[in-house]
Simulated assay, not measured.
Amino acid sequence: MTADPTYRGFALDAQTALALLQWQAELGADEPCLDDPLDRYDLPDRVTPAPAAAVAPPPAPRDEGRDLVTLAEGMAAGATTLAALAEAQEAFEAIDLRKGARNFCFADGRPGARVMVIGEAPGEEEDLQGRPFVGRAGQLLDRMFAAIGLARDAVDAERALYITNVLPWRPPGNRRPEPAEIALMLPFLRRHVELAQPEILILMGNTPCIAALNQQGILRLRGDWTEAFGLPALPMTHPAYLLRTPLAKREAWADLLSVSARLGL
């Protein structure tokens, strides 16, 4: 048995109650009120709550990024050969990129070459093959350096190239590497240069300039020799940019001639 709802003694059915609410809303009554008036000046003073028990402040958060860079530095420093460095870098689990990449892309070409090319990160084709600069941009890079007598498959170190990237794993969607990712891989890159012992470095694109020079703006930096990791270094536009902007190949050719002159080829 259900109670019979009433309004001041009058029975109300659901339809009537709803109609009354709609009528009050149309009149502008949009807040519920008590049946009897309330004198707010006669209310008791607000009770002040008791103070909460003292709680010790939480410990200062650890600088996780710095800790991971320190870990990377230790792992890189412990490698005494390129093979050991590749093994250490591939085993470094603190960078999330490795979870979505197919293959680890360490290097290609001849160790001990006079010229070491540092690119940005693997693309789709590089990720499939596990080698840097093997897609369309890599094929253009090979043609560019072949024009001055250098090749990654050259037996003679005088005419050889050694090629790597700042990041050995492909970023999702070929996006640009993030600063935190560059910072984590920088100790490995620095050690990579030390162990490869090139005569000069070629910084292909903005990401290598950020890593090695702490600068960006490749169109402004390209063509001017500088120093990176204690070696002469020349920033150059990335071959992928040249594929999109063929007119820029003229400046790239000038940069290649500068490399040739530097090496006395």
Results as ranks from 00 to 15, higher is better:
L21C: 09
A212F: 10
Q22K: 13
L201W: 10
V259L: 05
R110Y: 00
G119Q: 10
L167F: 05
P32F: 12
G65H: 15
D4N: 10
I95N: 15
A121D: 06
L18R: 14
A11I: 09
A252Q: 02
D13R: 10
D108C: 09
G230T: 10
T164M: 03
S258R: 03
I163Q: 10
P111S: 12
A107I: 08
L12E: 06
L12Q: 12
P235T: 03
T6V: 09
P5A: 08
G9F: 06
L219N: 13
T2C: 01
R191T: 03
G109M: 12
P168V: 02
W253V: 04
E93D: 15
M144R: 01
P171H: 08
P122N: 08
D42K: 12
L128F: 10
A154N: 08
A146L: 07
A76F: 10
L71K: 15
T6Y: 02
L263Y: 05
A14D: 05
V259E: 01
I218N: 11
I148N: 01
L195F: 08
F229D: 12
F106H: 12
R244A: 15
L203I: 07
I95M: 14
L141E: 02
P57A: 12
G205Y: 07
P179Y: 04
L43W: 13
A84C: 07
L128P: 00
A183W: 01
L20V: 06
P44C: 08
L257K: 03
L34G: 13
N165W: 05
G109E: 09
L140T: 02
N214Q: 15
G138C: 06
A252P: 02
F188K: 06
D35G: 11
P44R: 05
A88S: 15
L243K: 05
R40E: 10
E87L: 13
E158H: 07
D255H: 01
E227N: 12
F145W: 02
E124G: 03
E251L: 03
V47H: 09
A180I: 00
W253S: 08
A3T: 12
Q139H: 10
L85W: 11
E93A: 15
R220N: 14
A101Y: 11
P122V: 08
Y7C: 13
P179K: 03
Y7W: 15
G138S: 06
W253K: 13
G112V: 11
R191S: 06
F133I: 00
Q24F: 01
